[in-house]
Structure formats: C-alpha cells, structure tokens
Design a protein around this nucleic acid. Structure first.
Length: 552
DNA sequence: GTGGTCACTTAGTACATGAATG
DNA sequence: CATTCATGTACTAAGTGACCAC
C-alpha cells in the first residue's frame, strides 16, 4: 500500500465495535412549519366552501398536491388517506366530511401548480438568493466533526410530513406520515462535545453518547414503526472503510468459492431435506445473484420475495423449453416490487429437488419450507468468516465486471458500459424508461440520418474528385463523417440497450471500484469518464490505493 | 427456534442543475 | 440568450443481517 492521503490506513484501529472517539454536530434541520392557505383559496365539501382547521387543512394540502398523480385514484391510497385525514379533523369536521368523493381540492391543487410554475419562472437573482440560502443551511447543519475529520452528513434534514408513498401494491400507501418534532428525536454525540440545542421552545427526546453506532440522530417513523437515522455521507472515512471491508470479504469469497460450490453440489443429494433446500437456495443465490429473501410481516408491506421466501407460485418447471432441458421459469416481485423474470436452464439435480419441494403444495406455500435466511447465513459464516448471502451478489457482480472488461477490452468506453450493463442485468437493476426516451431516441436517429446523407454526398463528391484529378486525393472529410456517424450509432445502441436498465446501483454498491480504477489506468481512459465528482469522492480510498495491476 | 429490535446498505424516482443546442 | 435534454443529487423506502430475550 502506497502512502495514502486518505488517512484511514494510518490511524490506529479502535477496539471491537467502537466507531469513533469524538462526535460533534448541530443536530438535524427541521422542515418549515405549515403555512396556512390564503383566504381566497378554499376547500369545498359537497359544493360548499368549508374552512378547515389548521391540522386538517395541512393534510388536505398533501392530498391536493398529489392530485395529478395516478395513485390518488387508487382505492387503497384513498381509503388510507381518508382514514388518517379524519383523525386530524375536529369533531365537527369529522361529522361533516364523510365521503372523499364529495371533497373538492381543486383550488388548492391549482394554487400548488401556480406555485410550482412561479418557482420555475423565478428570475436569476431570486434563484441565486435561494441557492445561497440553501448553502447556508448546508454550511450550518450539513457537517459534523468525527474524530479529527470534518465530515459531510448524508441526510441532515428531518423528513417532512406528507402522504406515504410505498412502492408497488403497498397496503399502507396514502397513510399520513406525521411531522417529526424535536421531542421525537434522539441525538447521538460525544459527552464532551458541544451538544446541539433543540429549536427554541423544544427539547430532544434523548441525548445519547453511544460510540458503537455511527448515527448522529434518529427518530421513529409512524407508518411502519421503524427507526430513521441521520448518518454520514458516502464520502466519509467511516463509510469508505466499511465499503473497502465489504469488497475485501467478496475477494475472500473468490479464493474459496470453488470449495463452497462443490460443497453445495454435494448437499443437493443430502438425506436431510433442510440441507437440500439450503443447497438449492445457495445455487440460485450464487448463479442468479438473487437476494437472500428475509421473511416479511404480511399486510405490513408490499408482497415481495427473495430467494428464501420464494413461493411455489413464483416458479414454473419445464422439462424442455426452447431447446434446453431442465428450465426453471422465475416470475416474482423482488425488492421495490421490481419484477424478476428469467428462464434458466439448471442442472438436473436442482431441477429434481425443486420438483420434490413443490410436491403436495399450494401455489401460496413456501418453496423452501425448511429454510430461512438465518439458517442460511449461519451455514455460510461457518464456511467463511463474514460470509453471508449478499456477499455472493457483490462477488458475482465484481468478478463479472472484471471478466467482461477483459473480454471487451477493445472499444474502451462503450465496453465499460457494456460490462457495467452485464452486471446490472445480473442483479436485475431496472428503471422506468425515461419519460423523454422515445423523443430523445428520435432526435438521435434524425442526427444519424443526416450524417448518412452527408456521407453519401461526400462519397459521390469523392468519386467526382477522383475522376477529375487523382493527384490531391485527400479523403479526410469523408473519413471524419464516417467517424462521427459511427460514434452516433454507438451512442444510439448504448442508449437503446440502457432503456430499462439502471447502471448506477451496481456501480455504487456492487462493483469493486478498484477494478474500474485499474482498468482506467490500463486503458488510459480518464477516470472522470467513468466516475463523476461524487462517485470519485465516495471511492477516494480506491483511487488512492489502486495500481494498474490490481486484480479483484 | 422464534420474534422483536436495531443499525446499516441498497434501491428507484423526483427534482435540480448545468451542458448542449438552436 | 433561451430552451431542451442529459446528468447529477436528494430523498426516503425497502432490503439485509446481527443481536437479544424467551
């Protein structure tokens, strides 16, 4: 390891579990108080103007602001919203307002749209003033002091109140996400630091000094009852160190993955049903980069699954399909309700086991009824220190990138994107096609057509020129046009292939940055082509330590 | 084992920003 | 210089997995 300006290597390690020695910060930043509606903007019930109480009005505004969005038409959303809204109403309001369909939020909605429009049309000076005001908030609340370092905080703002928007068919969509008060917030910092002051007239729920955790503040959110944290930015020393550790564990897996694979191939024949199920699950996790699949509380979240929580209904077995034998067809909703659809040929032992697991089961039954993530991870950690199901995702993503870059090493940047895309496909990282996709594809195509025409013209001119005088014969402009055309066509392919694929997630979370840094050095591609500023900050540790000969 | 709590990573999307273009 | 479009950032939901009490 060379001398690193990134000082994590130089500092002594703390004893087990201790994350810092000194932590000081200004506490979280709270969203502005609710501003009541002006008198000329009214809410109507059953055609009659009704002046709502402040609390009920605030919630009505949340709904009115979302009116253009599809989910305000969904039954579950509307019912949850209405139920929670009524809780905020006064007794009188509650006895009047009994039917959401009789509510008219039109004026509030129009006011909101006008506000958005006005913001867009602000003058340069106004925009600048706003920017400066924001910067002031970042300067005051956006940083903390952790040991010797001034560090950027990732999310120093308390989440504002609003209507909960879950992903997919979330049973709690539309519920009121309540305003967080200082009295709900726990502050974590050093005893001997300058303890942040609660906003005037308020106090914190608790001041804690726990240096075995990395969060600066926390509160409990009212929809799921889960804890929300304020934590450091990804470019902090603490996060960087953790990231480096993650990739080191994945590299350790590389050195023993063959042994683990032959082990679970053996286990496919085990007499213990639990062991067989574990082996098949591991086969999927390794081969297909499926997530572990923890159990979830029914009715609390959208119905999504991972490997261990797969149900019979998510898998179809085909003895023969498209010329392959033993094909498993997966169709389920994974994290964020993103669909996973894949037809995979598997080895016969796996196929036979799956058939066995599905015998005498209903579609809604668990595929792996003798297995859960806890057991799986216990087993994995006995095979290798620090090994869990998600390490396979990291390992397979990173090793795939490295292999792909080796195979495709001819065309530089395009091949990097290709390799990145191979990983994103493996990990099923999808996105909604951009709203302007068709449009932007069409403009690009128009450009390509224009170039083609230009090229055709250049060609005929060239012929002409050759006829007239063989001597001068420089085909430079034609070559240039050809090059530009090629570039455009590459761009078009790249964009088309990326339509529904999100590259960012794998780049940020799964691909060992040292692979990319080394590749850039070898290919003489500037790092800026691969990583933008914040990505370079996040991966500072890797940029600092990686030589061209790095191997994952 | 089970169930609950907690801390932390991973994830897609909405919105802001800034570069390219006319 | 204004508009358009691609890229970057903020936001916060939704996972993973450790640990603890019973």
């Amino acid at each position: 390891v060379s001398q690193c300006q990134f000082s994590m290597w130089e500092e002594e390690k703390y004893e087990d579990g201790v994350k810092w020695r000194f932590l000081e910060h200004k506490g979280p930043y709270f969203p502005p108080e609710y501003q009541p509606l002006p008198d000329n903007v009214q809410f109507y019930y059953n055609g009659k103007a009704v002046k709502l109480s402040l609390a009920a009005e605030e919630v009505a505004v949340f709904f009115a602001q979302m009116l253009d969005h599809e989910y305000t038409t969904k039954k579950v959303f509307r019912e949850n919203f209405f139920k929670d809204w009524r809780k905020e109403m006064t007794h009188d309001e509650r006895s009047l307002i009994k039917d959401l369909d009789k509510c008219d939020f039109g004026e509030i909605h129009a006011m909101h749209k006008a506000k958005v429009e006005a913001r867009k049309n602000m003058s340069k000076e106004e925009k600048l003033a706003l920017k400066e005001a924001n910067q002031k908030i970042i300067d005051e609340f956006g940083y903390c002091l952790l040991d010797h370092h001034k560090e950027r905080i990732g999310n120093f703002k308390i989440e504002p109140p609003g209507l909960f928007r879950g992903r997919g068919e979330h049973p709690k969509q539309g519920m009121l996400k309540k305003r967080i008060q200082p009295e709900d917030v726990i502050i974590n910092c050093s005893k001997n630091s300058c303890i942040p002051a609660a906003p005037p007239g308020h106090h914190w729920k608790e001041i804690r000094c726990d240096n075995t955790v990395t969060w600066l503040a926390s509160w409990t959110e009212n929809i799921q009852g889960s804890i929300k944290y304020i934590m450091l930015n990804a470019n902090s020393k603490l996060k960087g160190e953790k990231d480096w550790e993650k990739y080191e564990i994945a590299r350790k897996l590389k050195s023993c993955v063959e042994g683990i694979r032959s082990q679970y191939h053996q286990d496919l024949k085990s007499k213990q049903m639990g062991t067989r199920q574990r082996a098949v699950a591991l086969y999927f996790i390794d081969k297909l980069a499926l997530r572990a699949g923890n159990e979830k509380e029914e009715g609390e979240t959208a119905d999504t699954v991972g490997c261990c929580s797969l149900r019979v209904e998510h898998i179809t077995l085909h003895e023969q399909l498209d010329g392959n034998e033993c094909v498993v067809e997966f169709d389920f909703l994974g994290k964020d309700s993103i669909r996973y659809y894949n037809k995979v040929p598997v080895i016969r032992k796996v196929f036979k086991n799956l058939k066995l697991f599905m015998e005498n089961k209903e579609p809604g039954d668990d595929m792996f009824d003798r297995l859960n993530t806890n057991m799986l991870n216990k087993h994995l950690s006995s095979l290798m220190m620090g090994l869990t199901a998600k390490v396979f995702r990291t390992y397979n993503a990173s090793i795939t990138l490295q292999q792909q870059l080796r195979e495709l090493s001819n065309k530089k940047l395009l091949s990097y994107n290709r390799a990145n895309r191979a990983v994103a496909i493996l990990c099923n990282h999808q996105r909604a096609p951009p709203k302007t996709f068709e449009q932007s594809m069409a403009t690009l195509q128009a450009k390509i057509d224009a170039r083609k025409e230009q090229l055709a013209l250049a060609k005929s001119e060239l012929k002409q020129a050759k006829k007239e005088a063989k001597a001068k014969g420089s085909s430079d402009p034609k070559l240039q046009t050809e090059e530009q055309l090629l570039k455009l066509e590459v761009q078009a392919t790249d964009r088309e292939e990326n339509k529904q694929i999100a590259l960012g997630t794998s780049k940020l979370n799964y691909l060992d940055p040292r692979i990319s840094v080394a590749w850039c050095k070898n290919m003489e591609v500037p790092l800026e082509k691969i990583y933008n500023k914040s990505q370079r900050d996040k991966f500072a540790w890797a940029i600092d330590m990686t030589e061209a000969d790095f191997e994952f």
